[in-house]
């Protein structure tokens, strides 16, 4: 169904799709004319990477679905018509119609629920990623740059949080909330999930702070905030972004798992994880009620993982 988008993207793909060649030609002579930054180089690579193109198309598609579900279906995910319930098997011929993917145990259109469920998954995934990136980067940068006692303290704190099993911790935290909205889930996951980024950021900052260009800025008398935000942050960003994009898929999976376990989003929310949980009970009579939302979770997680992987290949300093 996303034919238009695919076509447009595929045009960019040149015949030769050889991925990133990693040769450094030392001391290249007169440079090419266009100014090229790391980001534009990365973009140049990404555009030629089929893995990236496929995942990007899928992600754009999922984002559109999350923002404007009405574009995809007229049916409501909450309208229950018990007359249809789960005996309403998928009707593969009726593409995009309410009965396309059949009905669940309460007679709700599975297609509509899949479409509307995207919002919860994507919001949680993106929300948690943004939150952990901010928290993790700030803590990692402070620890890495200032070092000494600050570092010892923050690193131990990171270790403590790292010691908490992620899902178990989330279970405990979420269990203490009665009304679990999307925001509560995001906060709970972010509360436990910032450690990885903090470690990556700290490591990157420690390496960068010793580099000559930071020393040069200090020798000029640059202020701490200038060194942090002009010199260190832009150079530490690449590994942070890589970790964040790869983690995004994991957060979507975590939300689905928690919803499945009954401590994710409340019952009233439309979410894939919740649907998987409910579908499990009908596994033998109506397997499609379990399989379809599960497949959606898998596709989404996979898209983000592939996307993260492609971004890492393009940004990884070891390859250039």
């Amino acid at each position: 169904m996303p034919d238009k988008t695919v076509e447009k993207k595929v045009e960019v793909l040149p015949g030769d799709t050889a991925s990133t060649a990693a040769v450094v030609v030392t001391d290249a002579g007169p440079a090419p004319d266009k100014a090229r930054s790391l980001w534009s180089d990365a973009w140049h690579d990404l555009r030629r990477n089929p893995l990236f193109l496929i995942s990007a198309v899928l992600i754009v598609f999922l984002l559109v679905m999350a923002i404007w579900p009405g574009l995809f279906t007229n049916a409501s995910p909450r309208d229950a018509d018990l007359a249809k319930h789960y005996l309403g098997k998928p009707n593969w011929g009726h593409v995009f119609a309410a009965d396309w993917l059949g009905y669940d145990v309460q007679g709700r259109s599975i297609y509509a629920r899949v479409v509307y469920g995207a919002r919860a998954s994507i919001t949680v995934g993106v929300g948690v990623t943004i939150a952990v990136t901010i928290i993790g980067t700030v803590i990692g940068m402070i620890a890495g740059y200032f070092g000494g006692w600050t570092d010892t303290l923050l690193s131990r704190l990171t270790d403590i949080f790292l010691g908490i099993p992620f899902l178990l911790g989330a279970l405990v935290v979420l269990n203490s909330f009665d009304d679990r909205t999307v925001w509560v889930v995001i906060m709970a996951l972010a509360f436990l999930g910032w450690t990885q980024i903090a470690r990556v950021a700290r490591g990157a900052v420690i390496t960068i702070k010793q580099s000559d260009y930071v020393v040069a800025a200090k020798a000029l008398g640059a202020s701490t905030s200038r060194i942090l935000f002009r010199h260190i942050l832009p150079n530490a960003l690449a590994p942070i972004i890589v970790v964040a994009t790869i983690a995004l898929g994991g957060y979507i999976a975590a939300e689905a798992t928690l919803s499945f376990l009954g401590v994710g989003l409340g019952d009233s929310a439309v979410s894939w994880g919740g649907d998987v949980a409910r579908g499990r009970e009908q596994l033998r009579i109506a397997p499609h009620t379990l399989i379809i939302p599960s497949v959606m979770v898998s596709i989404t997680v996979l898209s983000f993982l592939m996307f993260g992987d492609a971004v890492r290949n393009a940004l990884d300093p070891k390859l250039r």
Binding site: S37, L38, S211, D212, Y213, V215, A216, A217, R230, H231, P234, N235
Partner: peptide
């Protein structure tokens, strides 16, 4: 500085 490759901020 000694190393012209590391003494300039690549960004």
């Amino acid at each position: 500085f000694q190393d012209p490759y590391t003494s300039l901020n690549p960004r």
